[in-house]
Design a protein around this nucleic acid. Structure first.
Length: 114
DNA sequence: AGCTTGACGGACT
DNA sequence: TAGTCCGCCAAGC
């Protein structure tokens, strides 16, 4: 049957943006939500990412909250997976918080919407 | 059908 | 500047 393109399309959009996050960069849920037009629904982005399990091409570990905290690390394989992946890309994480977050921050609305 | 939860964010105190 | 509360939107119970 046809799945809800309206609803599922939202997921695809989220995944599409997350996939476009450059290597060694991070972004926030709000940035993605804002880019998708649902700035007030940053939670939906996180909820959408909750369904990204199995999608290996979606670097969800590059998506953190506004504070640069690895709020979703607990949803990965292990509590170290997210931090480990970020560290592998040159992003240092201290106490679940990205160091120099603003420096590595990547805004899709700013980079993709020129 | 209503209440609670959640990978968030912003405003208020 | 930090801690707390409220609002969003959808899913789960």
């Amino acid at each position: 049957m046809e799945y809800d393109k309206k609803k599922f399309g939202f997921f695809e959009d989220v995944y599409a943006v997350v996939r476009q996050i450059p290597h060694g960069r991070v972004t926030s849920y709000r940035a993605i939500a804002c880019y998708l037009g649902t700035a007030r629904s940053a939670r939906m982005v996180g909820w959408a990412l909750n369904n990204c399990h199995g999608l290996t091409d979606v670097p969800a570990h590059r998506v953190v909250n506004r504070n640069g905290q690895l709020s979703g690390k607990k949803h990965f394989e292990t509590l170290n997976t997210m931090q480990n992946k970020l560290a592998a890309e040159g992003i240092h994480v201290k106490e679940e918080q990205v160091q120099d977050f603003s420096q590595f921050f990547w805004d899709p609305a700013q980079e993709l919407c020129t």
